[in-house]
Amino acid sequence: MPPESSGAGRSIERASADRIYYTLAAVIGGTVGIYFLVVPVLDLNIAFHFYLMLWITMASAFNVAAGFSGYMPFGFVAFYGVGAFTTAILVKSLGFPVLLALPFSGVAGVILGLLFAPTLRLSGIYFAIVSLALAGICRLVISNMPDHITGGSFGLQLGSRAEPVHSFYVMMAVMLLALGTILWLSRSRLGKALRAVRDDAEAADMMGVNVTRVRLYGWLIAAFFPAVCGGVEAWYTNVVDTETAFNTLTTAKTVIYAVAGGLGTVTGPIVGSVVMVWLDELIWRQFPLLNLLILGVATVMLVLFLPRGIVGTILRRRPEWRRYIP
């Protein structure tokens, strides 16, 4: 075998690292897929696992905005809420079949992303504040629309269309699509360009990266998935109202789960969501009255002791694993 320091040796080493990376990705994807596939079959807790998949998808999409692109959209819930209302309005008012309405939720998220795109010239806390304000505006706009469209303060009920098992599997498909997209992004040229822009936009610009275009692509990917999640959740719960669809706790949970796992990796938001949603469930079962207090303390401890998140900290300590762990 050629020595690792030679060109041929490096080529073999690269191929081997790629093999491990994709094998690990397939094993993680396969395990996650099979696990969720059997949840309804084995009559496990569908509601818990539905929301677990929803949070994995939300945290992974948030990771594209925060981990790959360097934005902190505190108004992330806007995409979710608009997606939920798009599905609800199309189904309730226009008689769309739910499965046909869901892609339109994604399109609505992308359109909203395009409308918000001028804010991408901001950065840091300024972007975060403007994003939060825009989410508030979206909520107000929908609240003030005629009652026969958005259902007013009572919201919209989708009637007899609730199909928990079907919506569970659709949520699973959306999650796998999101994870596949982010796995592709992490290895793609667009992903590299996004990371370069995140680290130093001006330097990336001078290296030939079209910063505006790259940021927009990343932003639209990040906008698409929460909007579809909103639509699927509307189908699952059978009701949509502005109070829950635009609840800032949705953004807060998404941020916490993504950060807990570690931004910038594919596995980070998955691990973060699984750990935190389980932790939330366990605390809620044992201490129903102190649930939020204990969860808050756990989150503070996690951020204090693992500021890079679970996966981020592992990769910080074992940098040689970066090439293998998606």
Partner: peptide, 29 residues
């Protein structure tokens, strides 16, 4: 120095050639 701090050295070097038609393995080499 304005390097891309949270990217590997190889990825740092790939950034200026992301729009090239060359295949990824050739660029990495």
């Amino acid at each position: 120095p304005r390097v891309f701090r949270k990217m590997s050295l190889i990825d740092n070097l790939l950034v200026p050639v992301l729009d090239r038609d060359e295949a990824d393995p050739a660029l990495i080499e």
